[in-house]
Amino acid sequence: MKLFRFIVSTEEGELPVIAAAESEEAALQVVDQEIQHNLLIQPKIRDVVLIEKKGIKKSGAGYLIQPRKSYE
């Protein structure tokens, strides 16, 4: 199992989405599910990008969600 960090770009701005899944493809489906489930009005999505992935160890894994700095 891996942890995937996505950025969903919409007309209103960027949404960070984190997905735990076995593969990139499965993670992408998780992203869609989370967007559909969590937003009453579906945003107009410009693009969805995977920018980082890491293994989930027994001690866990995570990402800090914050606006990306210009050099990141």
Binding site: L28, D47, V49, L50, I51, Y71
Partner: peptide, 18 residues
Amino acid sequence: GLKLRAENNQLVDAYELF
């Protein structure tokens, strides 16, 4: 490098510039 969702819902290689 990053992965971008394409029209067919597949992730394809893509890049950002700095």
